[in-house]
Design a protein around this nucleic acid. Structure first.
Lengths: 180, 180
DNA sequence: GTCTATAATACGATAGAC
DNA sequence: GTCTATCGTATTATAGAC
């Protein structure tokens, strides 16, 4: 519902109706409106981890059969796709990030999820570019993920076609890999 | 008020109280809540143009006394500053962008403002890097401005210290300039 | 242009039964 | 765990006087 209507547009009553339960049952399980946001953040973080891990499910023979550079590009470009699950995750993530600007309760969890994500990308960079230093990998990961977030919200807000966003990100990944 | 409380947190009554007028006078001038958002977008676009033009007010002797590369970096880094005006503009811009995801009325105006901004940066890039092609400048401008938006919301949501954001952007600008 | 007053309803949250 | 019923208030928007 957050992905469809935004955090702004989330109505506890509507959420209950969509789930086919009463409003008070939502409060029983989530305590209050802020609880819904917290649990949504957990949900989309877990789901993003899951579909990142499950990408390319057709192989599975032998360890790490994919070129590390390709793997990095796949993982990042995965977030710029017009499938229901990815679009939903990206939209909700953008909403929670934007809400965190005004919601101190959310800030800490959003920062933590960001940190985890940046770290994952930095690890992939370290495999793709073994000569670089750890701080250089961390900085590149921060640039690439921040760029991805910027492109994502432009896509979702209708300022940038999806394919164009993907091309821009792909070029940035390549540039980071060829740099150091 | 949008910068302080967010679009979510904007209350027409509060806005009126802050202005020292009645609620209905707000409706007289802005028609409805959406009108406030539209006019805010105009306001921050105009103001961003203004402070971009007025940056570096100390000189004014001779045409274009600043190195084009320095000028590009100045214009972009200007948006990552903890001054009241810039923080207000960045926060409001982020809010309007995020709102546009769910608000079709806002989408067109946000896309237009984005396009104008990207074009300005592309022009600066053309001066700083005369050998590149126009499409390459446009793409670099899109990457840099999208990165800036991504870094900005991370800063404002407490996921990234301001100085760190500035350093990441500065490095990206340098990389784009050294690339083509 | 500006106000007071208020309609109309939406919304978060709780009480209390089962 | 789940429901019905409802409280209390916040909020957008309008009517109508000046």
């Amino acid at each position: 519902m957050i992905a469809r209507r935004g955090v702004r547009g989330l109505r506890v009553g509507e959420l209950a109706a969509e789930a086919g339960v009463s409003t008070s049952l939502i409060y029983y399980h989530f305590t209050d409106r802020a609880g819904i946001l917290r649990r949504t953040l957990e949900f989309i973080s877990d789901r993003a981890d899951r579909y990142t891990a499950e990408r390319d499910p057709g192989q599975g023979l032998g360890p790490d059969p994919v070129d590390p550079r390709t793997e990095l590009a796949q993982v990042l470009l995965l977030e710029l796709q017009d499938t229901p699950e990815v679009r939903e995750n990206s939209t909700a993530w953008g909403e929670l990030r934007a809400s965190a600007v005004f919601d101190a309760d959310l800030r800490e969890d959003v920062a933590k999820a960001t940190h985890t994500w940046v770290h994952e990308i930095a690890d992939l960079l370290a495999h793709a570019r073994p000569t670089g230093t750890a701080p250089a990998h961390a900085a590149a990961a921060e640039r690439l993920t921040a760029l991805l977030e910027g492109l994502s919200v432009r896509w979702l807000s209708g300022s940038l076609p999806l394919e164009h966003a993907r091309a821009l990100l792909a070029d940035a990944i390549e540039a980071e890999l060829d740099h150091a």
